[in-house]
Design a protein around this nucleic acid. Structure first.
Lengths: 71, 71
DNA sequence: AGCATCCACGGACTATAATACCCATTTTCC
DNA sequence: GGAAAATGGGTATTATAGTCCGTGGATGCT
């Protein structure tokens, strides 16, 4: 599994996570996700489901929509 | 599977689909999905994956972000 | 050097999304 | 009222999302 849109999503997550000064493991814990899964997401290797997207956006206190690219 | 955010997503898909004057079957066909699956999505019964969200937004020629609620 | 933190990546397993059917019910329109 | 179109909702199977464990490499710090 690999796709430009998934990579764009993951890159956005990573950027926002770093902006908050969190490690992958810290964000994963906040979002209630597995640490290695968070790594796969940021690398764009997984086709994440909608509710997981919300778990991450909740953990970062950001609207979920900002993680989706326009194109 | 049932959840307020999934229902909100489905409601948005339905609203946009009707605005374009399409049937579930027509939209499903445009998006390359099964008609009954589209029904489940609109009713908020499925936790859709990111790439499927894009398939639907592409079919409707709308940005994917508009289907995600802020809360 | 040694220790700690962070991340990439993999394997094995479980849960569930997604596909492809089906039939019943509702809605639409003549 | 009746036919056709549109939708609701179920079932069974396959594909894959997601979990849980580990290993190794890179970096920084004392």
């Amino acid at each position: 599994m690999s796709n430009a849109r998934l990579q764009a999503f993951g890159a956005k997550v990573r950027a926002m996570r770093k902006q908050k000064g969190l490690s992958q493991e810290e964000l994963a814990s906040l979002a209630g996700l597995d640490r290695s899964y968070m790594g796969h997401i940021e690398r764009g290797e997984k086709n994440i489901t909608l509710l997981k997207i919300y778990q991450i956006s909740d953990a970062l206190s950001l609207p979920a929509a900002i993680f989706l690219t326009d194109e």
